[in-house]
Write a protein that binds this DNA or RNA. Sequence first.
RNA 1: GACCGGGUAGCUCAGUGGUAGAGCAGCGCACUUUUAAUGCGCGGGCCGCGGGUUCGAUCCCCGCCCCGGUCACCA
Length: 499
Amino acid sequence: MSSQDEQIQQRKANLDALQALGVATYPNRFDRRDTVSALVDAHSAKSHDELEAERHESSTSGRILAMRSFGKANFLAISDGRSRIQVYIRQDSLPALDFDVFKTLDFGDWVGVEGRLFRTKTNELTIWASRLHFLAKCLLPLPEKFHGLTDVEIRYRQRYLDLAVNPESRRVFETRSKVVSAIREFMTARQYLEVETPMMQPIAGGALARPFTTHHNTLDMDLYLRIAPELYLKRLTVGGLERVFEINRNFRNEGISTQHNPEFTMMEFYQAYSDYQDLMIFTEELFSHVAHKATGGTEVIYGEQQISFAAPFARLSLREGAREAASRALGREVHLDELKVGDSAAAIATALGVEVLPGHGAGKIAASIFEARCEHRLIQPTFVYDFPTEISPLSKQRADDPDTVERFELYVAGFEVANAFSELNDPVEQRRRFEDQLKDRASGDLEAHQMDEDYIRALEYGLPPTAGEGVGIDRLVMVLTNSPSIRDVILFPLMRKRD
RNA sequence: GACCGGGUAGCUCAGUGGUAGAGCAGCGCACUUUUAAUGCGCGGGCCGCGGGUUCGAUCCCCGCCCCGGUCACCA
């Protein structure tokens, strides 16, 4: 019998022993008065003498994460997932039945404890147990207490084990929850209406990406999991909801990496009577607020870097970023004009080893150079603005330059965490842009946008001047929790099926 | 998809072409304030899976599976 099988048998035997004692093996409820965390928070500063004077009688519960036995003196450490507290068990302080129950306990079991608080000789806050209640059995051996669980495959596939034994993991997801709460609080305080739009869409629009497909049986209709909520949210602004936001999942049928999970969470919002410049200011305020609420300040450590979310953030035009990077890599001064003409831009890209596909204009080439050579260097929050029109089918052109749109992406720690633009609200121009996308699609670009006639009809009813933005929640949480992989901030990241 | 690294006890990890190792966890004994408790003793392994080479493979070779990283694609 393997070590694991052996331990399972022993734990089952202990469960049987409980039953033989007449104790409920899976009791229906336990009325706890205090969480472990509440006890620790309320009493951790109190001295031995203060505790003796108060003789606080507690009733709490948790999972056993340590057991030390000295014959008639025994110690447990129980945890509510956030804090842990020690329990002192001595035979002459408990009813005989409770001590018999104690003898059946295994590392990982759930118990309820009643008793007064005191400090041991080594000054540890401890519950002197007067009652012990069995709550639930841990039949499988838990990872060991000292090294915890470090195998990332088990941490991702069996997140419950990770959370049970790695407090750092718990903290990451608590921070994630704070981030989402802070965003909601920030948006609703500014009169944004929180909405939910379809996750299953007949046309997967609002972004350039490959969708997942699904099917509705009764309607006999193929559907896509959404790649973005964008077109639905702007329909709401057409309807007069001037400020809307949605926090929800997007699904993109693309690669997996430290920065990409097939389903990921975005906060997307639209605001009438604003443009992309207004959103830069708004974004600075939002990120400062969220960083403060989630971490207590605006300075965070990410890997080797210290990142500041204090406003203002740096601003850099995409072409200037590409120009600087090209100059640095080629060892000569590259001029902006060279990036604005297809032939010279293509020559620079080729010299840099950046692939240029037929049909790519100067704008797309400049963007490729930026992505290959510049973006990973943007550690401090940086607004990269003025994107080429050809890669921005839903953004409004600059009044002074139709090849450039009023759009920015926010980069932090070398990757994109937000994307925003002044929304294209001219239905004729929007139709022309979709038609350009259809040509790309016809030439094999699976990520090109599809035609959405109803969206154009909505624009024909009139979208006021509006700016919109999407914020990648997972990536923001990565930066705020110093997590190197997106899988560290998603409770159940997608993994290959395993037998 | 390509390349690199990894998969050995429940967990964390050593290791070798010749009977498989440690610490923790587990079991037994001792111990009435311990802190990764300690001491003594014991049990626990398809060395990811399948082929091949070999007298003999956990180790060498080939294929496959899973995980991680880099690149490609993307946010």
